[in-house]
Amino acid sequence: MLSAASSALIICCGALAREIKTLIRLNQWYHIALTALPAELHNHPEQIPEAIRQKIGEGRKQYKRIFVAYADCGTGGVLDQVLKEEGVERLPGVHCYGLYAGESRFQSLQEQTPGSFYLTDFLVKHFQRLVVESLGIDRHPQLKSLYFNHYTEVVYFSQQPTEALLLRAREIADQLLLDFTHVETGLRGMEKILEQKIPLRESVNLSLNLDQHRRVV
């Protein structure tokens, strides 16, 4: 994914890679290269800061500017310490759900229904691997109720929803015996941050491009 022609590098979480790639393509940010770390690291957040430090070290050899597309992601401030030492910025906030939904909307949803489990397009697609298998629910179905007994609903924050994704998201809610809510967030939250954080040389009319894309999907 690294390209010598690019001048800026985004180091992102695997859970955001496809979405950021879409934004790069739609906005023709040809000078931005993307490299991802496995989303599985979320289950071991203590490993995230050093993994990112290593990617930054590798990226420095080639790129003038580096941006980290991770939130705090459960590192309890350790990621921020590493990024401060490296002089690199990251996405604002604590996790990507707030970023997609908008922090204040996320906060009020969370306060209204504390027992929500959040899905994104990525998590809908990889729920089986990242939640069911990773947390051993496939091997030990009795664990499902231990994990989810305090949950009441599944909230799907969709970025580029399709019929198939919506169907699968509903299926996940059914599987967990939880209510289902769909909130369309799109990619604008993420796009705005990237526009702010990375010099957008060669960028073209963003909203026009995205609108065209949305008509296609």
């Binding site: 289950n43 947390l135 629910i137 664990l143």
Partner: peptide, 14 residues
């Protein structure tokens, strides 16, 4: 030490 992960710990606790 990372030898066991959450599901195993939960099963042991049970």
């Amino acid at each position: 030490d990372g030898v066991l992960f959450v599901p195993e710990v939960l099963l042991s606790a049970n």
